[in-house]
Structures are given as structure tokens and as C-alpha cells.
């Protein structure tokens, strides 16, 4: 199975994934990235912070970035006064 790396950039700086994970394909890697973003945000949210300004880079075994996900792309956002997006 190919190895994917999940690097994070947000308010607290850049966090490199040195370990990576073997996953079946890019679609599964994307799902894992979304789960990761959601778990970080939900933990921060329970502490009273909702910061969606970060990004997550999915990199392949050669450490080439194959996709960048903005944190807000991991959520369906409904804010007061805005339409459901």
C-alpha cells in the first residue's frame, strides 16, 4: 500500500508528519485527512475556540503534496444570518 503524509498548517504553526501511514489509495487518504481535521476542530471547539483557518497537505511517499484541504472544507457550515452552504 502507498504511504501518505498529513502535514498541518494553522494558527500554531507547521506540523510535519514524519511517520506517514500506509493506506489503500488517495480517496482513503482524503477521508483520513477529513477525519483528522474534524477531530482537531471538535477538540478545540470543546475548549471554546473555532478556528477554521488551517490547511492540511496530503503528501505522497516522495513527500510531494498531492492535495491541500482547507479546514473549512471538512465541514458543512451554518452561521447565523448566512444561508446553509
Amino acid at each position: 500500500m502507498p504511504r501518505y503524509y498529513f502535514h498541518i498548517r494553522n494558527g500554531s504553526g507547521f506540523i510535519r508528519d514524519e511517520e506517514g501511514r500506509e493506506l489503500p489509495d488517495e480517496a482513503v487518504a482524503r477521508d483520513e485527512a477529513l477525519k483528522g481535521i474534524r477531530s482537531i476542530i471538535s477538540s478545540e471547539a470543546s475548549g471554546g475556540l473555532l478556528d477554521l483557518t488551517g490547511e492540511l497537505d496530503i503528501a505522497d511517499a516522495q513527500d510531494e503534496v498531492i492535495e491541500t484541504l482547507r479546514f473549512d472544507e471538512a465541514f458543512q457550515l451554518r452561521l447565523p444570518g448566512s444561508r446553509t452552504s
Binding site: 498529513f6 500554531s12 506540523i15 508528519d17 485527512a33 483528522g36
Partner: peptide
């Protein structure tokens, strides 16, 4: 937790 979250908390 998720591995991505663990990585961040370890940092």
C-alpha cells in the same frame, strides 16, 4: 483520537 490529532498534540 485520530493520528493527525495525535501528531499535533505531540508537537
Amino acid at each position: 483520537l485520530t493520528p493527525v490529532h495525535v501528531n499535533r498534540m505531540l508537537k
